[in-house]
Amino acid sequence: MSEHSPVSVNTNNKKSSFKAGNEAPLLSLTGVEIARKQRTLRYRIKKSKTSYIMMCPYFILFFLFTVLPVLMSMGLSFTYFNMLEAPKFNGWANYTKLFLNDDIFMISLKNTLIFAVITGPISYLLCLLFAWIINEFRPKVRTLLTLIFYAPSICGNAYMVWSLILSSDRYGYLNGILMNLGIIDEQKLWMQDANLILPCLIVVQLWLSLGTGFLSFIAGLQTVDKTLYEAAAIDGVKNRWQELWFVTLPAMKPQLMFGAVMQITQSFAVADISIQLAGNPSVNYAGATVVTHLLDYGSTRFDMGYASAIATVLFLLMVGTNKLVQKLLRRVGE
């Protein structure tokens, strides 16, 4: 319970120093404080019994199926584990290999960062923009538009569509169109040319971006109190952009936070589109991302220890980014 003590110390310091000063100046301060702290912490836990009971079903399952597996694989990252024999402890070897001896990891890390820095913010803004635009239509039209924008996420055949579009012969849709327009003379090998793979994947990823964040923004916009807009109009909000920045966005800050976390987890963990369109490994590793590298080790080379080390590094990277983004989002509407 030591993690909670900062909170209780804070509330207690005020009370106990006040009381100790008035009633029992002779008693040793620290003893009283500790006693009070324990009593109030226990008291507060007891008082919150209902809260804990309500959370019980979720957190029991959460500890079993998420916390425990995550801790176990973090532990595995310090071992050599080929999934057939028992894991063998090898200390920091996986990590030193990862950072000092693995050129492909460095390529994949670079690709992932490029991916995340470009698609992350753009996807996020697209979700917000489209959710905002859709909110202007009549309800029936809105449902239809939402379906059309959400279609790539729900149909499950997005890769098939894009492999037709990016097909490298002259029958591929993109090659066909560009050649008919006379922009290129011969077909481009979209998914076999190391210079073209990453830009193409970024475009596909952006096209796929209206997913989780998009739907949660739409739902968030429904809960914004309509009277806020009237109040804002009186307060001198002039145009729609001001209304968006000063009224709508601050009112849906919780959803913005949620969307940001989902966006981070998606843009750093990008792998599927690369594997489906460019293959794994891709030409000259041009489409390699951290997660494709992880899958390569985890499911092809049977080195789970090393894959777990990659996952742990990726996790730390995302946690850091999340800290940064949350800080930025707190300033919305200021």
Binding site: T265, V291, L294, A307, I310, F315
Partner: peptide, 8 residues
């Protein structure tokens, strides 16, 4: 949510 599900 940020831990890769592949290794878990």
């Amino acid at each position: 949510m940020m831990f890769s599900w592949t290794v878990t």
